[in-house]
Design a protein around this nucleic acid. Structure first.
Lengths: 250, 250
DNA sequence: CGTCATGTTGAATGATCTCAAGTGCGGTGG
DNA sequence: CCACCGCACTTGAGATCATTCAACATGACG
């Protein structure tokens, strides 16, 4: 009896999950992830090489440092944290990847991943085998250009982080991260002022080159200044102009 | 009379300069700059799109932030400094480029350079128009792969710098820079232990996220420890193992 | 209800920055 | 040839900001 009920339930669940046929042309993230300039037939070709098999549990790895590099990945849902481990065992978070964003490109140069990637919450990704992507790119100039651009953007963003880490105060760093999350959220039609930070304070500190305590103090300070309303991981930006001022200050 | 002398001199000089026909196949930097895997005929094809017209004086710009992106550049001689200017006018050095190394790829994503590039001393570069490079890449899988790899390496190196800036002490940062210069020198068959730093202390400090004074103090300290011999810009690494230890410490 | 992980807050320490003065070298002009 | 100037670099002393260490709070979970 019970078994039957469960069976019925699970079949219902299956039909209700997001497991329906997703492809690049109907993916609502394609405007972030894909070049606008591809033709429908080209998108179909790309679609054929993309593998959508990998749902990740919180804490599960997408790949690890020095794994053989085979694919790049596009985030479909959830958040992925990329980090490297230094020789002496310290961890350095190098980026957070949100839906529509692409990661894994640091593995191309040595054919081995230069960082590890881990799900901060349940996440799904599209796997794009790099060999196929290369071949396809050779025959699709727009796709080739798109990947050059995506890699170039990664460089640009890393350089922004370098600038941040090189000069800025704790307040500026935290403010800049929040603004980055904010703009990336609005790109996905989500609220630019209210969101849940999927990463821990430790991860934030690590990413920004600060200790947990300092991050926590900055949140408290910005809350006291009525710039933020902080409730654990839930963040509301109350005064985004003030936040911008803090991020750019000095 | 005088004029004649000068004429004679200048013609002699001309015949003695490095202005002889340089091309990719006879360039002694090709092992760094070029993919090994290209065939002779392919190298010739690449050679045809490379422009070698630009000798730069010290302080002269190769390109400036927000210039239209048209080409990437390979350094042939001298050192190029890349830097960005933040909204509030501060400068951030994002990299130093030595002979054989390629810069300018951060301009691809927005079709505008994301940084400025300036010669730290007299320098010559090869200009590689990106449009031609793209076209050529489409028909030469090895070249396409090579450029993906070069960009990937840029990402990897930026991430190393991020790690450095995020955690390390002043000693570690300076040691790491010196080791980086050292290995890049030996890649070019130059001494790994004795070299001239073409960049100023200000630039070093800026790159490493330190003040000039701190950089200077670190040099003094490492000299006192007999790890380095410093004479202005001339550096000798006396104890490279100790330097490595300092770079990795903690 | 207790345990563990995560986050917050406080007080003291310490590394780097800031400010200020001084050194040394290359170039210029007398 | 020497004196002077400017610039890059060095050195010192005090101030500042993030870290460290420690205690405490909160929340998830068995």
């Amino acid at each position: 009896m019970n078994t039957q009920l469960i069976d019925v339930d699970s079949s219902q669940v299956t039909s209700c999950t997001h497991d329906f046929q997703v492809n690049c042309s109907n993916c609502r993230l394609s405007s972030i992830c894909l070049p606008f300039s591809l033709e429908a037939t080209e998108i179909d070709e790309l679609d054929r090489i993309v593998q959508r098999s990998k749902p990740l549990q919180k804490g599960q790895h997408l790949y690890r440092e020095s794994d053989v590099f085979e694919s790049v990945f596009a985030v479909r849902s959830g958040t992925i944290k990329a980090y490297r481990t230094t020789d002496d065992g310290r961890e350095q978070v190098t980026g957070f990847y949100f839906p529509g964003e692409i990661l894994g490109m640091d593995g191309i140069s040595n054919n081995a991943h230069a960082s590890s990637a881990k799900a901060l919450e349940t996440a799904s990704v599209c796997e794009i085998p790099f060999n196929s992507l290369e071949k396809l790119s050779a025959s699709m100039p727009q796709l080739q250009r798109h990947f050059f651009q995506i890699m170039s953007r990664e460089i640009t963003e890393d350089q922004q982080l370098i600038t941040l880490l090189s000069k800025s105060s704790a307040d500026e760093r935290v403010a800049a991260l929040l603004l980055s999350v904010s703009t990336r959220n609005s790109r996905r039609q989500l609220s630019a002022t209210q969101f849940r930070l999927s990463m821990s304070r430790v991860d934030i500190g690590n990413y920004l080159g600060l200790t947990v305590e300092t991050v926590s103090r900055v949140f408290s300070r910005l809350q006291k200044l009525d710039v933020l309303a902080v409730e654990n991981k839930e963040i509301e930006i109350l005064d985004i102009d003030a936040l911008r001022k803090i991020a750019d200050a000095q």
